[in-house]
Computed example of a mutant assay.
Amino acid sequence: MEITLKVNQAYPSDSGRGIARLDPDAMLRLQISPGDIIEIEGKRKTVAKVWRAPKRDWGRGIVRIDRFVRENTGVSVGDGVKVRKTDYQSARTVILAPLRKMDFRVYGMDIGDYLKHQLLKRPLVEGDLVPVIGAPALAGFGKYGQSQALLFVAVKTEPKGVVVIDESTRVIYRDRPAKGFERLGKAGVTYEDIGGLKEELQKVREIIELPLKYP
């Protein structure tokens, strides 16, 4: 079973968390519950964990996903995507590499263990852009601050297919930037990265962005 939904931007508090918000009708049609994993297909396929949408989104036929999930699917706000429930396996191994060269250090623990701690229960597929939100209490990020998303690529997973990082997963960090993923990480700052200006941002989208995209 699959349905088609229109992509909308994530709420700021959801950014970087690998989740997709669906309304109860969409979840009923897909026979899924909050916490299940869905596959999202645009130009490419990726996965996300389902959360229930707030009432103001019910009946609108939308899925709210952040810029990282949108990049992994190759879509923009307003595009249609196919959504379906998917099976998954526990990841035995996930190899992560930075999207671009960065000054990334962790104090007091292995970098792979730190990344696993930050990504526990995160679903992904090989080739995904994987954001990690900085936490200076655990790591030294050089110029990166606490709210800065550090961008990694899942260059290899074992097994293949949809996997979820759990306590048994071995996460390996490679410090050389991932090659062949230049298409990723170019979105820059988006609406869901900016909190506290919901009404103002919506007016900007309605007046400027949407008429340019859909004249």
Rank of each mutant, 00 (worst) to 15 (best):
L5S: 01
Q9S: 12
A10N: 15
Y11T: 06
S13M: 07
D14A: 12
D14F: 07
S15P: 10
G16I: 01
A20N: 08
R21M: 13
R21D: 08
R21Q: 15
P24R: 12
P24G: 13
D25R: 09
D25E: 15
D25Q: 10
D25L: 13
L28P: 01
L30N: 10
L30M: 15
L30G: 11
Q31G: 04
S33A: 14
P34F: 05
I38C: 01
K43Q: 06
R44N: 02
K49C: 06
K49D: 08
A53S: 13
A53M: 07
D57C: 09
V63P: 11
V77R: 09
G78F: 01
G80Y: 01
D87L: 08
V94K: 01
V94T: 06
L96Q: 00
L96P: 00
A97V: 06
M102R: 11
D103M: 12
D103S: 13
Y107I: 15
Y107V: 10
G108I: 04
I111Q: 01
G112R: 00
P123S: 07
G127N: 07
G127I: 08
P131E: 08
V132I: 09
V132T: 10
K143H: 15
K156W: 12
K156E: 13
T157G: 03
V162Q: 00
V164T: 03
I165Y: 03
I165Q: 03
R170I: 03
V171C: 06
I172P: 11
P177E: 09
F181R: 13
E182M: 08
E182V: 14
G185H: 05
G185M: 03
V189I: 09
E192P: 00
I194S: 10
L197M: 04
E200C: 02
Q202N: 11
I207N: 08
L210K: 13
L212K: 03
